[in-house]
C-alpha cells in the first residue's frame, strides 16, 4: 500500500476519534487523581401536580413519574425515602440530578435540578454507553460512535506504528520505547 494512502488513513481515523481521545485523556487523569468534578448546587426549582397511583411500589412509582414528566435518567433505589405522607427520590443521568419530593395525598411534586457541569459530563462519557432510560434515539447512537471510535483508534495506532517502523524507525527509539513497552507489561504482571 502506498505511503500517502497509509498516512491519509491514519489521519482520517485519528481525526474521527480526536475529540473522544481528548475526553478520555481528561477523564483518565480525573480518575487517577480522584478529582471531584461533579457540581452539587441546585440551580432550578419547580413544581407540578401529577396523577399517579401512589400505592405502586417505589420502582414503578418513580418510573411513572419520570415518564409523565418526560425526564430521562436512572432512579437509584438507595436515594428513596418514603413515609406515609411523602416520597422523596432522585432521577439522575450523566449530566444532571433531579431531586423530587412527592406529596402522596395531593400529588403535588417539587423538583430541584442540579446540573453536574461540563467537566462531569466530559468525565462521564468514559462510562457512558448511551443507554439512559427515556433518552432519545440520538443519545443512544453514542454506543455506535464509541464502538467505532475504539475500532478506529486501533487502526490509527497500528497504522502509526507501521508508518514509524517502515519509514521513520531509529534504533535508539526502538530500544527506548521497546524497553518501556516491556517494563509496562512487567508492571502489569506485578499488579
Amino acid at each position: 500500500m502506498k505511503k500517502s494512502l497509509l498516512i491519509k488513513l491514519h489521519l482520517y481515523s485519528g481525526l474521527f476519534t480526536s475529540f473522544y481521545l481528548i475526553a478520555f485523556g481528561i477523564s483518565a487523569i480525573i480518575l487517577n487523581h480522584n478529582i471531584k468534578v461533579e457540581k452539587k448546587d441546585i440551580t432550578h426549582n419547580w413544581n407540578t401536580n401529577i396523577q399517579v397511583d401512589t400505592n405502586l411500589p417505589n420502582k414503578e412509582l418513580k418510573e411513572k413519574i419520570r415518564d409523565q414528566l418526560g425526564l430521562m435518567g436512572w432512579t437509584p433505589p438507595w436515594e428513596d425515602k418514603r413515609d406515609s405522607t411523602s416520597f422523596q427520590f432522585m432521577i439522575t443521568h450523566t449530566g444532571r440530578n433531579y431531586f423530587l419530593n412527592l406529596n402522596l395525598a395531593t400529588g403535588d411534586l417539587d423538583i430541584s435540578e442540579a446540573p453536574k457541569g461540563i467537566m462531569a459530563v466530559i468525565h462521564g462519557l468514559h462510562f457512558f454507553n448511551g443507554n439512559i432510560p427515556n433518552a432519545p434515539f440520538f443519545i443512544r447512537t453514542w454506543a455506535v460512535y464509541q464502538w467505532l471510535a475504539l475500532f478506529v483508534m486501533f487502526i490509527s495506532l497500528f497504522l502509526g506504528l507501521w508508518l514509524w517502523i517502515k519509514y521513520n524507525y531509529k534504533t535508539w527509539e526502538g530500544i527506548a520505547f521497546g524497553s518501556l513497552f516491556i517494563v509496562s507489561i512487567i508492571i502489569m504482571i506485578l499488579l
Partner: peptide, 17 residues
C-alpha cells in the same frame, strides 16, 4: 503510567490535528 496515558491521549489528539 496512567497519568502518562491521559496526557498522551490529549497530546496526540491535539498535535495530530
Amino acid at each position: 503510567l496512567l497519568d502518562a496515558v491521559g496526557l498522551s491521549l490529549i497530546l496526540f489528539a491535539i498535535t495530530g490535528v
